[in-house]
């Protein structure tokens, strides 16, 4: 069963168009011009219960806009959308009981009161039964290490502490889906690690569907099995992380250390088409090769004809590089690939 389903989802905004300078400002006063900004267009999503999905794309690609439409904050300008079978905007209050949301730069906590009071207030807002609340509070306090944070006011918490509290808030009412928009932004490695562990556990143990946006590919590889890439408002890839690599990463590389000085010109001559030296030093060399034409063994054998290899290291295809290419617009993924 799909808990999230969209068909042809679109959202565009109207933005004023202004010419620079005082004159431009005065002109806009009397003859305003606007232009249409398309944030999201023709987005089709089908996410099943229990999945963990990473939603990735450069800044301004439409990630947050999509999440905001799925959570009922924004009204779509076109297309269909269903979350747990409900329309998130028109049936917002019912939908909100089924979802948990974490925005990395926002908090659900009340700034000036102790965290625990925010929790109880939210318990009343979500009408969480006392028993469920007590169980969840104990569970989250243990997993996220909240014990010493609960009696401090939110404004005294560090970003990482606040994010841990916000995660607990998002899951307190046992939602079926949790949306996380940049949950690890600005956090240190230890806190990131803890949050990823937490997300994996609730996904596994409680079957919570996770949809996550992040610029941190560590989050994505660690937590998610499925990857959706959006660019300029369109979905350009939807599939497994391995699938993306298989399809779009042609190159693999091998780094070797030789026992003696490598004769660079003759080494270069030894390389056939599709194998290329990308970095060379006195006794060190990195070679990139088309992984669909050659195996690592083939390449190693070729190198050994030119150098005395004492050690080597194989570098696996790297998701980071793929996504970076997408961000920089260098990799044109096919629509619907």
């Amino acid at each position: 069963m799909n808990v999230i389903e969209t068909k042809g989802l679109c959202k565009s905004f109207r933005s004023p168009l202004k010419k620079p300078g005082v004159l431009g400002a005065v002109r806009h006063l009397f003859r305003p011009e606007h232009r249409e900004i398309v944030a999201v267009t023709e987005v089709d999503l089908a996410i099943a219960a229990g999945e963990s999905v990473a939603y990735v794309g450069p800044n301004g690609a439409g990630k947050s806009t999509t999440i905001k439409m799925l959570t009922g904050i924004l009204l779509p300008t076109g297309g269909e959308v269903r979350v747990n079978g409900l329309h998130p905007y028109h049936q917002r209050m019912r939908n909100s009981k089924n979802i948990g949301v974490v925005f990395g730069q926002r908090t659900q906590l009340w700034w000036d009161i102790p965290v625990i009071e925010s929790f109880t207030l939210l318990r009343d807002i979500y009408e969480v039964p006392e028993k469920t609340y007590a169980e969840n509070l104990a569970y989250f306090t243990g997993m996220l290490g909240l014990a010493e944070l609960l009696h401090q006011s939110a404004r005294r918490l560090s970003l990482g502490q606040r994010m841990r509290c916000d995660l607990a808030v998002a899951l307190m009412h046992n939602p079926a889906i949790v949306f996380l928009d940049e949950p690890t932004i600005g956090l240190d490695v230890a806190v990131k690690e803890r949050i990823r562990e937490f997300l994996k556990t609730v996904n596994r143990e409680r079957g919570v569907t996770i949809m996550l946006t992040s610029h941190d590919l560590g989050d994505i590889e660690d937590v998610c099995r499925r990857l959706i890439i959006i660019d300029a408002g369109r979905i350009i890839y939807d599939g497994s992380i391995q699938g993306l690599l298989d399809r779009y990463v042609k190159q693999r590389s091998i780094r070797i250390i030789a026992s003696a000085r490598i004769d660079q010109p003759s080494a270069a001559r030894a390389m056939p088409a599709g194998v290329e030296i990308v970095h060379a030093d006195e006794r060190e060399m990195t070679v990139e090769f088309d992984r669909f034409r050659y195996t690592a063994k083939d390449v190693l054998e070729i190198i050994m004809t030119a150098a005395e290899v004492v050690d080597f290291q194989l570098e696996e295809p790297d998701i980071e590089r793929v996504v970076k290419n997408v961000y920089e617009g260098r990799l044109e993924l096919e629509q619907g690939a």
């Binding site: 905001k68 959570t71 009922g72 904050i73 917002r92 209050m93 019912r94 909100s96 009981k97 979802i99 949301v101 925005f103 926002r106 659900q108 939210l122 807002i125 979500y126 009408e127």
Partner: peptide
């Protein structure tokens, strides 16, 4: 900041 008001069942 209106966001969080829209995320709650109230």
């Amino acid at each position: 900041d209106m966001d969080r008001f829209l995320l709650r069942p109230v």
